[in-house]
């Protein structure tokens, strides 16, 4: 358990550039809050969805303060619509700013996706076209968000089920260019990478060769499920409700072997199992981190 902390020297120099410790975290679910708060040492950091803690007052904010006190905190936004056609929602930026000011999080992250259009919020991370006008729009939005929020953000790669014929950029090059232009870091979701590679017949190795791994400030692992599309072909869905698959653990090991140890988050948003089940997954991640660390020392 302590291996991850005793081998600091092999961590990439910029591991956790926004301050998350290079260990294992968990996406915090309400059902597990009290058990984890009773023994915060079970995980090295926690991640919350920003939109779940935007209350004006009341017990939700008291809980938030306890969480921020107990761990390095990762605030993960799902509603900013960074890839949207429209300007960022100022009201939402204000709410994020309030949350960040209140908790001084170790990391703030959002998604390469859109979720709002013409005043409607779709409660999903919808795919963007990888073309130059979109790239420029995303860069403007991230610059605006980082300026307004006063933090460097991490941008997460999406899982997608459709690709647009209008896309002219490789997804990884698109992300790399955004990071270079805005100074933001990347949140590498290896489950999303695995899902998108499977669905679009991409190579994960090739994808990874297009980004500078030093930009990665956090890694997500999560589960996916397989369904059949209308043509009977298997489509992987980022369900966030399944155990982390073996290929995703393998991809994690590959990434940290190549790029160095990073803060790794076990993410589960639906069909929440007992905490003990999730802690088995965090243990698996720890074993991978320790294995990688020893290999690096040898």
């Amino acid at each position: 358990m302590s291996g991850a902390h005793s081998t600091m020297s092999v961590f990439a120099p910029n591991a956790g550039p926004n301050g998350l410790p290079p260990g294992v975290g968990i996406g915090l679910k309400r059902a597990h809050c009290e058990a984890l708060l009773a023994d915060p040492s079970l995980v090295d950091f926690v991640e919350i969805h920003a939109e779940n803690f935007m209350s004006a007052g009341g017990p939700n904010l008291i809980l938030l303060d306890r969480i921020a006190e107990a761990w390095p905190l990762s605030i993960h936004g799902v509603g900013l619509s960074i890839g949207g056609k429209e300007r960022l929602d100022r009201e939402h930026l204000h709410r994020l700013r309030k949350l960040i000011d209140r908790t001084s999080p170790a990391s703030f992250s959002e998604h390469l996706a859109w979720s709002s259009h013409d005043g409607v919020y779709f409660n999903d991370l919808l795919p963007v076209v990888y073309d130059t006008p979109t790239l420029n729009r995303v860069i403007v939005n991230i610059n605006e968000a980082q300026d307004f929020l006063g933090v460097r953000m991490l941008l997460e790669n999406p899982s997608t089920y459709v690709a647009f014929s209008a896309s002219s950029w490789h997804e990884a090059e698109f992300l790399q260019q955004i990071a270079q232009s805005t100074g933001c870091g990347l949140l590498l979701d290896v489950n999303n990478l695995y899902v998108s590679c499977y669905n679009h017949d991409w190579s994960a190795q090739d994808w990874l060769s297009h980004i500078t791994l030093d930009l990665v400030g956090e890694i997500h692992v999560a589960g996916h499920e397989a369904i059949q599309d209308a043509e009977g072909q298997t489509l992987l869905i980022d369900s966030h409700g399944d155990p982390v698959g073996e290929p995703v653990f393998e991809l994690l090991e590959h990434v940290i072997t190549r790029g160095g140890i990073r803060p790794v988050l076990v993410e589960r948003d639906n069909d929440i199992p007992p905490l003990s089940v999730l802690l088995q997954e965090t243990d698996q991640v720890r074993q991978i981190i320790e294995r990688t660390a020893y290999a690096a020392v040898l």
Binding site: Y161, I227, D229, A230, E231
Partner: peptide, 8 residues
């Protein structure tokens, strides 16, 4: 075409 948009 492939029913994939339906996922969204």
């Amino acid at each position: 075409e492939h029913g994939r948009f339906n996922v969204y």
